[in-house]
């Protein structure tokens, strides 16, 4: 399957292991990634906070570039925040033809010929796994089931709320997909309080204590629920939960050593890649230091 691939900024900045692991795992999933390396930042909600039309126009440009990718069935992102911010912009662009025309006029001005047509499909990797690839197909690709691995799902706000905008309903329980994927890969889903909560990243520069208390609380709850690790489809969550974990531990006053995996890393492990290939040594809380991937947790590769 060929997709217009939007990696986002942070996956190529402070969490390079995310982009790296996505590229490593894509061929195993049968995904051909056509990177949208000409596109700009989605704005992460902050540009929309500053100027809505600006965020809408920048994302309309990204959407237009995606629509130009030959043979791509849809646009795929690997960041909850990109998904949420872009869905918000797309909702406005798709809702009103006059507004869309206005934004397209700006696009055409900036780059003659560029134009967004209503109705792009833009899915996070998580959604694509369940809705396009299918859980059965995914299960068939598993080489090394994550037997005994206790995984706490952490979705990130932007990919679960608001439900209506994100198309979450009884037919598309997108707020259960992470659970389903963990189980499909052979892991055990850990139920803990933080699954749908906020990592705190958006206010890290405004109210650092509150921000880190959020991260620390969720990590602590997952620890209490005896999770081996968390998995996140959002690199910004990863920053607060992993990079800031030692600081968060100070704020909540308890030691924390909870590995936090990016979704492609978890996929990669189950699909037979090695932790190192997936950049897992780049984490602050090294999953390799906390979990013995070779034997204790992950079963031996299934016979091919």
């Amino acid at each position: 399957m060929r997709v217009a691939y939007w990696p986002g900024c942070v996956s190529r900045g402070f969490t390079p292991e995310l982009h790296g692991s996505m590229e490593a795992v894509a061929p195993l999933l049968g995904l051909e990634l056509v990177p949208l390396d000409r596109a700009a930042c989605c704005g992460a909600g902050v540009i929309a906070e500053h100027n809505q039309e600006l965020a809408d126009t920048l994302n309309a440009r990204t959407f237009a570039l995606a629509q130009q990718v030959d043979g791509a069935e849809l646009m795929m992102n690997i960041c909850s925040t990109c998904q949420g911010a872009q869905s918000e912009c797309q909702e406005r662009l798709d809702a009103n033809s006059a507004y869309r025309a206005r934004v397209n006029a700006t696009l055409d001005d900036a780059e003659p010929g560029l134009r967004y047509e209503k109705g792009l499909t833009n899915k996070n990797l998580l959604w694509l796994l369940v809705e396009e690839l299918g859980l059965d197909a995914l299960r068939a690709k598993v080489r090394r089931p994550l037997t005994n691995l206790r995984v706490g799902p952490f979705y990130g706000c932007y990919i679960v709320r608001p439900r209506a905008r994100l198309g979450i309903d009884a037919e598309h329980p997108r707020d259960r997909y992470l659970h389903q994927v963990i189980e499909t890969l052979g892991g055990t889903v850990i139920d803990y309080a933080g699954t749908y909560k906020c990592c705190g990243f958006p206010i890290v520069t405004m109210n650092k204590t509150a921000s880190l208390r959020q991260a620390g609380t969720h990590l602590g709850d997952a620890t209490d629920a005896e999770a081996d690790c968390l998995v996140v489809p959002c690199p910004l969550c990863h920053l607060n939960l992993d990079l800031q974990q030692p600081q968060a531990a100070k704020v909540v006053g308890r030691p924390l050593a909870m590995p936090v995996l990016h979704l492609p890393q978890l996929l990669g492990l189950a699909l037979g890649l090695e932790p190192k290939q997936l950049g897992m040594s780049k984490h602050v809380v090294k999953p390799t230091a906390v979990i013995d991937w070779s034997a204790a947790v992950v079963a031996a590769p299934a016979p091919a």
Binding site: C157, Y158, K197, I203, N207
Partner: peptide
């Protein structure tokens, strides 16, 4: 410090 910039943008209230 507990005003408009203390919102963590989690969309809970919208839903």
């Amino acid at each position: 410090p507990h005003g408009i910039y203390d919102c963590t943008h989690c969309f809970m209230c919208i839903d």
